[in-house]
Simulated scan of single mutants.
Amino acid sequence: MSPKALSRLPELLPSKLSPAQKKLYDQIAAGAKDSSGRPLKTRVNEETGGLLGPFNAFLRSPQLGADVALLAEHLRFGELECSQRLLEICILRTVQRTGALYALWSHQKLAAAAGVASEIIKVISEGKNAREECKSLLSTEEAAALALCDELLQPGMVVSEATYSAALAVLGERRGFEVSVTAGFYLLLSAVLKTFDVRPPEDLPQSKL
């Protein structure tokens, strides 16, 4: 990969796409929004028109890529009980642990837009314990969700009875499910980003991971 390349995969440009790929391309480009629904220019390379991040890889298998993209949209804009702020905190924790640079860069911005305090974003991005260092900034629900994510992200993904019971008491079954699906989805997305060595379009020091 050349120093300026953002991925191991060459960009698939709009003029070269099949009908199925073009349909997915349009859906992905239109779905770039912040938590309030405002359009963002974070998914398309403005110089070439190709898709950035994991989305360029999605085009290689349009049906599977469309299914993955749809789940991503549900997690951001679907009828969920978890707040977007809570989920963005869980996402940051997940992608920081996997070292998925593009997702960390992207969700630092999305977390800020969702109202996550800059100190929480900084602490999680540096791999520190936000439940200890940002205790006063986290709600009870956010702390419980982080505890659940922390155990899911350990080898073996063993969630202790104590952590589960605490999360259930605070989050309930539905929000506990939403947190576990969010962590699982961003593990999946990290697998794509790491396989194809997808990098953010802005410098993000490795020391933050």
Rank of each mutant, 00 (worst) to 15 (best):
P19L: 12
P54S: 09
L148K: 00
M157F: 10
S106F: 11
L152I: 15
N45R: 08
L75I: 07
S136D: 14
Q63N: 06
S18L: 13
L204Y: 13
A166V: 05
V44K: 07
T98Y: 09
G99M: 01
Q27L: 13
E73A: 11
K23L: 13
E79A: 13
S139G: 10
K41W: 00
P201C: 03
F185W: 11
S2V: 03
F55T: 01
L193W: 00
A162D: 14
Q108W: 07
R43Q: 05
E142R: 04
L80H: 12
A147Y: 01
L40S: 03
T48C: 05
A191G: 14
K22M: 15
A32C: 12
G156R: 12
R76A: 10
A29K: 15
S139E: 06
S61D: 13
A103V: 03
K23R: 15
E126I: 00
A5T: 08
I120Q: 01
I91E: 00
S118F: 08
R199F: 03
H107I: 04
Q84I: 13
A111D: 03
S125E: 02
E126G: 08
S83E: 10
E202M: 08
K208A: 09
I124Q: 03
L204T: 02
Q96G: 01
L40A: 00
A113R: 06
A117M: 07
S190V: 01
Q206V: 14
L9G: 04
S190R: 00
V198Y: 04
R174P: 02
K22R: 15
A183I: 14
E173F: 03
T140R: 15
R174Q: 12
V68R: 05
L138S: 06
G115L: 15
R97S: 12
G49V: 09
L146R: 01
R85P: 04
S36T: 14
R43F: 12
P14C: 11
T48P: 01
G115F: 13
A69H: 15
D150V: 07
A103P: 00
S7E: 01
A143C: 14
V44C: 07
L148D: 00
L101Y: 02
I121G: 00
L87S: 05
Q96W: 08
S136Q: 09
K4N: 13
S180L: 05
C149T: 11
S139A: 09
S35Q: 09
R199A: 02
